[in-house]
Design a protein around this nucleic acid. Sequence first.
DNA 1: GATCCGTGGAG
DNA 2: TCTCCAAGGAT
Length: 392
Amino acid sequence: MVDLEEYGINMWPEEKIIAFRKTLLQWYDENKRDLPWRKNTLPYSVWVSEIMLQQTRVDTVIPYYRRFLEWFPTITDLAEAPEQTLLKAWEGLGYYSRARNMQAAAKQMVELYNGEFPTTYEEIIQLKGIGPYTAGAISSISFNLPTPAVDGNLMRVISRLFEIPYDIGQPSNRKIYQAVAEILIDPDRPGDFNQALMDLGSDIESAFTPKPELNPIKEFSSAYLNGTMDQYPVKKPKKKPRPIKYKAFVIQNKQGEYLLEKNNQADLLSGFWHFPLIEDFTKEAKQIDLLENEMQEEYQVPNQDIPLEIQFETLYHCKVSWQESTYKQVQHIFSHQKWFITIQSGLTNDDIVSDDHKRELKWVSSEEFSTYPFAKPQQKIWHEIQKAHKFL
DNA sequence: GATCCGTGGAG
DNA sequence: TCTCCAAGGAT
């Protein structure tokens, strides 16, 4: 148990807690958003929405949510889905391990619970991809259990209520906000209480453009009453993404098909297909970085001056006639990496491209591309190719 | 516990 | 353009 006094938090008397619940829930009843996942409280659909909404905006999620339930109406359907279909359903949403973890959890439920959703917090949090937040959300919304759903919204609102100065980006501080929420949560309507804090936190108490005068709980908020709203929550800035240079190889065979490779090893974009990529450590690339991208000293690497085209022919066991091209450099920013991709196209007569068993390679016509899961960098590269060809 | 894992929108 | 973010979890 967390002793709130140790953290300088003076919990309200019982009457004030009850008044707070009443005020918050009344506001929610009058102002709650009409969202597709609020039509019922069935655990499967609540689960799908909660996973999709992790670090992702509501407007982005809605079309994915609808399609996902059409494609996989039940836990069993999800458990049995082919990888390609699963990734297609998630294509563009990001954080793709969420989809893989959901399927793993669906398989757990088929094996352990006869394809049904478990009904206790302790069982739910054992499922793959479900942590304290999601377990709390599902438990409260679907099973009416008094478990807080401690996310960024809840921590932001509570930090202002009590002027809590502990960094909400620091995982070890989560327990403080959790302890406060466990006291505040309405035991009769825990699901609505949690969702009310989310609605409030995403609009009236948003991080960027809060609307303090419209806030239904402003009279409960220490930060509001003391004029310190702009000081909460405390959150340290994130690190900048690390720059990485790649060369993408857009290779066609005699039939005009393109060489694609499946990303089987990496955690990043695992399972997605892409034009072969080789990281560029050449001196030339380094010069471009210094001039165009202001590559920082800490990211400098030793030269490796074997031309990327030679490296490609060695790694992929084929002879290529390289084409002159004027494609623009493609950039893509992940949360932790920033890719600078130059495109090199070429033609080959070799049909067997690799005997390296680690690589999964395929010749694919552009008409078939839509059936392959492509992540954003690959889509940007393909877009650049098509754009360039329009001007020929 | 710090780092890794995507993407699109807002200012 | 750049920066920060948005309903976190796994390692």
